[in-house]
């Protein structure tokens, strides 16, 4: 499969590819984080017959439905792929202010800039946990971001 990447100056990036069934689908990633799912016309392959704007939350949900578990596999290679971005595992210790609290309460993304991409509990990986996911002591949280940002998340889980 050949995914084509095109920069859209002033807008963002477009990725698209041809499916085996002969359709062309793509995703436009706007600079602000908004996504657009585009499906190309069968007669005129240059035009999209459908373009569906998705909020950040909606595209997360769609990605999850389409097989987000792959994300965890790729996490291991992340350090090599992007310089300056690290994946960090942070253990929730008993007595952490978020022991027993839902993920949404941490506001980790807004407060630190790093993203919680998975939680490991009892050797099981829960990919893309939802905001209502409840933490318990012993969980290992996988965060991705710059070293400073991920360190800030560790601090967040330790002292709040």
């Amino acid at each position: 499969m050949d995914v084509e990447e095109t920069t859209l100056p002033g807008i963002g990036l477009r990725h698209d590819f041809r499916t085996r069934s002969g359709r062309r689908v793509g995703v436009v990633s706007h600079h602000g984080g908004r996504r657009e799912l585009v499906i190309y016309d069968t007669d005129d392959m240059d035009t999209c017959s459908e373009s569906i704007p998705l909020t950040a939350e909606e595209s997360d949900a769609l990605a999850e439905l389409l097989g987000a578990p792959h994300i965890v596999e790729r996490l291991n290679n992340l350090g090599k792929a992007f310089a300056g971005i690290v994946g960090e595992q942070i253990k929730i210790t008993p007595g952490s202010p978020y022991d027993g609290q839902p993920l949404g309460e941490t506001h980790a993304r807004t407060r630190t800039g790093a993203s919680i991409v998975a939680v490991v509990r009892d050797q099981q990986v829960i990919a893309s946990p939802r905001p209502d996911f409840g933490f318990v002591a012993g969980d290992v949280v996988v965060v991705v971001g710059t070293p400073e940002n991920t360190a800030a998340v560790a601090e967040l889980f330790r002292v709040g």
Partner: peptide, 15 residues
């Protein structure tokens, strides 16, 4: 709804 169109990068690069 033409942001995803394949001719759009051409238009943008002219701009």
């Amino acid at each position: 709804g033409r942001v995803g169109n394949r001719e759009t990068p051409v238009v943008l690069s002219v701009l």
